[in-house]
């Protein structure tokens, strides 16, 4: 066996880690190999000498420094932890807040958004839209008015009634419309047209001209149907100025009996 193969065992020999078996094998080898025996002896001696080299003791300073370092380190860790704990705590608080204030939060957001939306977009847009809408509605109004006036001139009674009915859709009837209606009321040959015109004018009784026109119209009417209707309207409007016109109507000798009674009743009710 070659000597190199015993190198491992040499180490084991000198630091006394060999098993009995290994020890026996090495002993057998060195008994027959002078160089290995000498080598092992020298190395063991050297190993022994090395043991005499003293390892100095660390100074007390080292221990002091260590504990100072440990304390400092513990402090820094504690600070980090408390900081982390703080952050955690605040985060958990946020979760607590949420269920407690959702309504208030939502309402505040809605108010803010609506308010700002109104401020930023509302004014300009609604102004524009209002102008456009006004222009458009006035156009439609004019159109209807023109159409109504045209229809009142129509030879067909039903078309004229249709024209009169348009006035209910006209919110701000101007003088032109009122004059046209009053003319229809007094001059239209068809009693049905005049009745519906009377109806339309009753809705416009807010206008002083309409009331005056209606009062003047009492003596103009020769149809008993119209006379009764106009008496009802005057009663409804509580128009006392119409009493004079009704008295004049009573002077007419060919007045219907039923109408005469009705007018007398109306006069007493108005006075």
């Amino acid at each position: 066996m070659k000597c190199e193969l015993y190198e491992e065992l040499f180490t084991g020999w000198i630091n006394k880690e060999l098993s009995a078996e290994e020890k026996g094998a090495l002993e057998q080898h060195i008994s027959g190999c002078d160089s290995c025996r000498n080598e092992l002896q020298a190395l063991q001696q050297l190993w022994g000498h090395m043991g005499q080299i003293e390892t100095p003791e660390p100074s007390a300073n080292m221990s002091v420094k260590f504990y100072a370092m440990l304390d400092t380190y513990k402090e820094s860790v504690k600070e980090q932890r408390s900081l982390w704990a703080d952050i955690k705590y605040h985060i958990s608080r946020i979760w607590e807040w949420q269920p407690r204030w959702p309504m208030a939060y939502n309402l505040a957001m809605v108010v803010i958004l609506v308010g700002s939306g109104y401020l930023f977009f509302g004014k300009n847009k609604s102004d524009d839209q209002d102008k456009q809408l006004k222009a458009l509605s006035s156009q439609v109004h004019e159109l209807k008015q023109t159409m109504m006036l045209a229809l009142l001139e129509n030879p067909s009674a039903s078309e004229r009634i249709r024209g009169v009915s348009y006035t209910s859709e006209i919110k701000h009837a101007d003088k032109q419309v009122i004059d046209a209606l009053l003319a229809t009321l007094n001059n239209d040959p068809n009693v049905n047209v005049r009745l519906s015109t009377l109806d339309a004018l009753t809705h416009l009784a807010g206008h002083a001209e309409v009331r005056e026109g209606l009062i003047k119209s009492i003596v103009e009417q020769d149809s008993p149907l119209m006379q009764l209707a106009i008496a009802d309207v005057m009663l409804k409007l509580q128009e006392k100025r119409s009493v004079g016109s009704f008295r004049e109507l009573l002077k007419q000798k060919d007045l219907d009996h039923g109408v005469r009674d009705k007018i007398k009743q109306t006069i007493t009710q108005l006075i």
Binding site: F10, E39, L46
Partner: peptide
């Protein structure tokens, strides 16, 4: 472990020769 043993041996031999 074998490598360690060989290396210790080599180191010891080296130390011896220096010494």
């Amino acid at each position: 472990e074998g490598t360690v043993k060989v290396r210790i041996h080599r180191a010891m031999q080296e130390l011896k020769s220096i010494y």
